[in-house]
Amino acid sequence: MFMTKNVLKNLMTKYATRLYPFKKRETFKDVKGELKIEMEKCILCGVCKMRCPSQSIAVDKQAKSWGVDPFSCVYCGICVDACPVKCLYQEGLYRTPLAEKDQVLHFQEAKSEEPAPAP
């Protein structure tokens, strides 16, 4: 009998959890999510490549390309802090899971964005 109060209360209240695929949580401000770049601002200095603790960034001055391996990136945000021209930023959302590994590669001119084949 002593549980009646609890049972009624639980029937009346809303779900304790979020109904996930239909209702998604809003991300907080300044969350360290996926690493993005504004390629036109980048000066290809390579500071991000040097500071990265997991060595996931590749900068090629000859090919004028900047690439990141999202599967070895640890989302620490060191490169964002270190960038002298502030062209790197992190988006609030995380990457969705993929079936195969891929690399993100950006070129400075002509070709703006093009995923390269996995090495």
Binding site: F28, K29, D30, V31, K32, V74, Y75, C76, G77, D81, Q90
Partner: peptide
């Protein structure tokens, strides 16, 4: 997550202080 940007690995410490 709201204060530091990550849920578990709260990467806020740096040599000489904190980042956020």
């Amino acid at each position: 997550e709201a204060t530091s940007g990550n849920r578990v690995i709260v990467s806020v410490n740096c040599v000489g202080g904190v980042k956020r």
